[in-house]
Amino acid sequence: MSSAVAGARIGVITFPGTLDDVDAARAVRFTGAEAVALWHADDDLQGVDAVIVPGGFSYGDYLRAGAISAHATVMRAVIDAAAKGLPVLGICNGFQILTEAGLLPGVVMRNSGLKFKCRDQWLRVENTDTVWTSRYQAGSEILVPLKNAEGRYVAHADTLAELEGEGRVLFRYIGESPRQGNPNGSLNDIAGICSADGRIAALMPHPEHAIDPLTGPTDDGLGMFFSIIDSLLKV
């Protein structure tokens, strides 16, 4: 582990109802970086170099998934820091929170079949020119777990055209139905998107659950965590 990697500090937020923060922190530590615990009621990001908004059922998914968390004190700090260039990754409930907070366009709604889906999911990597996906090869296929009841990405046709035209779709669901393919009815088979500058990203599947073949289906998810470390080392 290099001293530069050891000095990288990545914040992982915990909201009431968050359940994947421990896994996200573990993934950060796998890269050799420091995982910094951030609490929903705090306004201090503790000088972290990037932030992960992890999965779970924050605030019990009341109102809408992610709607309450988007207004938490810590998210106001994240929004301000993101405007100044802080990299942010939302995973599952984190994706919902980032759309509710206005950091990413569109909304994430109930799955088209109105059922909770839990399975290992194949994705195609569409964009590797971001701080969160640079370790992948464009067009490569990765296998990571997916678990959600509200994972259907929806956006206005103009927004979809903008995302597609600017290459801001990061991951897409692939595979043959009914065993694979689009699990939730997301428009354009979108599994993950990013901001125009590629520093804010989100996806519904869980890369933090695929960092070691001993505990996940693959280690394909590690690419996202090493990608952000690569970016921080260049700063």
Rank of each mutant, 00 (worst) to 15 (best):
I229K: 00
A70K: 02
R172C: 13
I68Q: 00
Y136P: 06
L86H: 11
A161N: 13
R76G: 08
P54N: 04
E150L: 04
L103K: 10
M109I: 12
I142F: 00
V36M: 15
G223A: 15
I229W: 03
A25R: 14
C92M: 02
I142W: 00
D189V: 03
A67S: 14
A155C: 10
V36E: 13
V12H: 01
G56S: 11
N184D: 12
D189E: 07
N184H: 10
G90S: 08
P183M: 09
E141W: 05
Q180H: 09
A191N: 08
V235M: 11
V74C: 14
T14Y: 03
K117M: 14
I211R: 01
R152M: 04
Y59N: 13
P105R: 07
T215W: 15
G85N: 04
A149W: 13
V125Q: 00
R135Q: 10
A191M: 08
E208M: 04
Y59E: 14
R76V: 01
V48H: 07
K115I: 09
L170T: 03
W39C: 11
V88N: 06
L232R: 00
T159H: 04
F95P: 11
G85A: 03
H206Q: 09
I211H: 07
I10W: 08
I68C: 01
T31H: 08
V22D: 01
L103V: 04
A82T: 03
V107R: 13
T31W: 11
F225Q: 01
S112N: 02
G11W: 05
D220H: 02
V235H: 13
G90C: 09
L114N: 12
D44L: 05
A138S: 09
N111K: 10
L233N: 09
G94F: 01
L38C: 02
L163C: 09
A157F: 13
G198N: 09
S2H: 08
P105Q: 10
L203G: 03
L160W: 10
Q137L: 04
V74G: 14
R199G: 03
N93M: 07
M75P: 01
Q180T: 04
A33E: 15
Q121F: 01
T128V: 15
P145A: 04
C194A: 05
C92T: 01
N182H: 11
T218P: 01
A67G: 05
L98V: 14
I91E: 01
A72E: 14
G216S: 08
I200W: 06
